[in-house]
């Protein structure tokens, strides 16, 4: 992404959340989905954002993913102030700087695997030959080259998720944003996907993982825990406090995994 006028230097910080609020007016009451969230993510970090249902994870993910803008506060992605951009600019940011991995894979059913992986490049205006090349290379990374001509429905869930990872990687994004990537998979395939994310991290990619599941969050390097739209923990994942919620006894937290949208 070319530096533009409102870009400022944040050192190694790729993502900067500065006092982010997202407030929904519901008649007389207001819902503070993000209630003054601040954190930053450095280039090459692997961060998990965790929290119970309704804690504000999706809100954060939408803002980080440039799918939504905050009510107030500033969000810098690679030095660019994303919080004030219009629709078209947001689409550009999503296209060039972000790679999405969704819980439901979100592949387009009537396009082949290869065409699905090509999509971000298509919207980036990459010419056909190069698009094909890059998409094939990306499919090779997830080991699905031979499925290129198949339709998504002909693949297993784990394979579909790998296709969606290939799609996320195709455009060489600055941040890979994974929203409950294992939620629809059995535990073994889920583990494989997580291992693959860890491998991507070891290759230098910046990864933000959104999950309600502590056992998955601990695979990240760092955990940001949300509750009622506020950050209640931000630190390494390998210390006991990472899993401690000040208000809930530790035994109950083990069962935190539950229904989440």
């Amino acid at each position: 992404m070319a530096k533009n006028q409102n870009s400022i230097q944040h050192g190694d910080d790729l993502i900067v959340f500065d006092n982010i609020y997202k407030i929904y007016e519901m008649g007389d009451t207001e819902v503070r989905a993000a209630d003054g969230i601040s954190f930053s993510v450095k280039r090459g970090e692997f961060v998990a954002i965790v929290g119970q249902s309704g804690s504000g994870k999706s809100t954060c993910m939408n803002i980080i993913g440039a799918l939504d803008v905050p009510t107030s506060g500033e969000y810098y992605l690679d030095g660019v102030d994303v919080s004030t951009l219009n629709d078209n600019k947001l689409a550009d940011i999503r296209n060039k700087m972000l790679g999405f991995i969704f819980q439901q894979y979100n592949l387009i059913p009537k396009l082949t695997v290869l065409e699905n992986v090509e999509l971000p490049l298509l919207y980036a205006g990459v010419p056909k030959r190069k698009r094909r090349e890059a998409a094939l290379k990306s499919l090779e990374r997830v080991g699905l080259t031979e499925k290129a001509k198949n339709l998504p429905s002909q693949l297993s869930g784990g394979q579909q998720q790998r296709v969606s990872i290939a799609r996320a990687l195709a455009g060489n994004p600055s941040v890979i944003l994974a929203d409950e990537p294992t939620g629809a998979l059995d535990s073994r395939t889920g583990r494989e996907v997580l291992e693959f994310l860890q491998q991507l991290h070891s290759e230098g990619n910046t990864i933000v993982l959104i999950t309600h599941d502590n056992s998955i969050a601990v695979k990240a390097q760092r955990i940001i825990r949300l509750q009622d739209g506020k950050v209640v923990y931000d630190g390494p994942s390998n210390v006991p406090e990472a899993l401690v919620n000040p208000d809930i006894p530790i035994e109950l937290q083990k069962n935190e995994a539950g229904g989440d949208a």
Binding site: L67, A91, L119, Y123, R167
Partner: peptide, 13 residues
């Protein structure tokens, strides 16, 4: 949903 996916991947209006 397809439209949502395309937009998330960078499709403009």
């Amino acid at each position: 949903r397809e439209i949502g996916i395309r937009k998330a991947l960078g499709a403009k209006r």
